[in-house]
């Protein structure tokens, strides 16, 4: 995957330094303004989470609370089993990511580098379903899952996400870019197909795998609709549906809702900040789906 530098832009002409300097200042003001607009809901969320409920809608707004009510953040853990929600979501997100990445890259190797009967037909099945939105087949899928006893289990959410056509497609596109001569040379050296996958393809596709891992992890962590349809028992709920329940049950405790929302954002923020380069470059180079 091409590593692009995002900071390089048109050079500034030396003949109009003053105008350029002025332009820079305008540019920075614009940037800061846009960042503020982007971040303001989060700032408001943070500020409200440290207030008392009656202070949240004070007029005029007070961005910095008079007194910082940090106890809001300890209160939410007693009002809802947040820790359990986190645990459930982590189990689902990690398993989905592992299954998705392993099986996709495994299958993609065959689609990209091996020749066999029905290859194109099978791959066509994958391509065709990429265009079909999940919302179009979620109901038969739900009925199928319920009839095999997956309703209201974490396993349902895992299976739901783990075998997407998208992962296979992404990995196959990447593998096609790796020279076939590498595989043939390895074959002559006596490496089996599994060996070629493990020793040559996997190490070469680190960046594609990183992209897939982050996409799958964040997508699964933030998924709301799947868990909403499948999970009803408290003990299997994920963060998103758990937070939703918390909001419904404490609908006038604005400060606590904001505190719980803040907490729910932390894990994904950490993953995003740590791996944002792969995430953003993955989108930039392959223009992935939303």
């Amino acid at each position: 995957m091409a590593q692009r530098s995002f900071s390089a832009g048109p050079l500034i002409r030396p003949d109009n330094h003053k105008a350029a300097a002025f332009g820079r200042i305008v540019l920075y003001i614009l940037l800061v303004f846009l960042s503020v607009i982007t971040l303001i809901p989060f700032v408001w969320m943070l500020s409200s989470s440290l207030k008392l409920d009656r202070e949240v809608f004070e007029f005029p707004i007070r961005w910095v609370p008079k007194v910082f009510h940090w106890e809001n953040y300890s209160l939410i853990w007693t009002k809802a089993p947040m820790l359990m929600y986190f645990k459930n979501t982590a189990i689902v997100a990690v398993s989905v990511t592992i299954i998705q990445t392993m099986t996709s890259s495994f299958a993609a190797y065959a689609f990209a580098k091996l020749e066999f009967k029905f290859r194109d037909t099978l791959f066509l099945c994958y391509i065709a379903t990429i265009a079909v939105p999940w919302q179009a087949y979620m109901i038969p899928q739900f009925i199928e899952f319920r009839s095999i006893g997956l309703y209201d289990t974490l396993l349902a959410i895992m299976v739901l996400q783990a075998f997407s056509a998208f992962g296979v497609f992404l990995m196959r596109q990447f593998y096609r870019g790796i020279p076939t001569e590498l595989c043939e040379a390895a074959r002559i050296d006596g490496l089996s197909e599994y060996g070629i996958w493990a020793r040559i393809m996997l190490p070469l596709s680190k960046s594609a795998i990183a992209t897939l891992v982050i996409f799958t992890f964040i997508g699964t962590w933030n998924d709301y609709m799947g868990p909403m349809i499948y999970l009803t028992t408290e003990s299997v709920k994920t963060v998103q549906v758990g937070l939703r329940r918390f909001i419904q049950e404490n609908s006038s405790d604005y400060h606590l809702i904001m505190a719980a929302s803040m907490v729910s954002l932390i894990p994904v923020s950490v993953v995003f900040l740590a791996l944002q380069r792969y995430f953003i470059e993955g989108i930039a180079t392959s223009g992935l789906k939303g």
Binding site: L34, S35, T38, L39, P41, F42, M45, I218, W221, N222, Y224, V239, Q240, L243, R244, I247, S261, M262, S264, L265, V268, S269, F272, L273, Q276, F279, I280
Partner: peptide, 13 residues
């Protein structure tokens, strides 16, 4: 990263 952040944050929150 700042401008991208809303995209990765949870819809419920």
């Amino acid at each position: 990263a700042i401008m991208f952040f809303p995209y990765v944050s949870s819809t419920v929150a």
